[in-house]
């Protein structure tokens, strides 16, 4: 039941070198990996491309086969299209449950309006968010 709401995000690690990001984009394209949402985080030394894709397991294998550092990370997707206050609500519910948000990012497209969050206890987070009637995205909806 909760599994359905745990989304596999790919975290792709990219050295800060000119052309590296373009090379990753090329790999995604060559393998027909359909990116549904992404976020780019940067440290001084390297960048992290966090991507929500339609076939994460296949994409993971494909990317890895190219020698690129990639990790699977569980995140939760919150639909924010119809309820603009849901970010505050989410933070409030998780905070009260003692769950920390490691990071979060919004992603808007024609089809979707998501807030993806990474928390320190994903299963518990799904449960408390559902109990609070916050609408979560299902795997099958990606």
């Amino acid at each position: 039941m909760t599994d359905e709401n745990i989304i596999t995000q790919l975290s792709i690690f990219i050295n800060n070198e000119p052309g590296r990001l373009a090379a990753i984009a090329g790999i995604l394209k060559d393998f027909n990996i359909n990116v549904k949402g992404f976020n780019l985080a940067e440290s001084a030394e390297f960048g992290i491309l966090r991507a929500i894709v339609d076939e994460p397991d296949r994409a993971y294998d494909n990317i890895r086969s190219k020698g690129v550092l990639v990790k699977k990370t569980d995140v939760i997707g919150i639909a924010i299209k119809d309820s603009p206050g849901s970010f505050f609500e989410t933070a409030d519910v998780l905070g009260k449950a003692g769950i920390n948000i490691d990071y979060g990012y919004a992603y808007n497209s024609n089809d979707f309006d998501f807030l993806f969050i990474r928390v320190d206890d994903t299963e518990k987070a799904v449960k408390v968010l559902k109990d609070a009637k916050i609408k979560l995205i299902k795997k099958s909806e990606i």
Binding site: F13, A41, S43, E45, I48, R50, L69, D102, Y103, R118
Partner: peptide
Amino acid sequence: VEVELNEPFLTDDMVKLG
């Protein structure tokens, strides 16, 4: 000093990296 992470400890959490 440049140091290198061991792969099992690689995380996409910037706070933890910091």
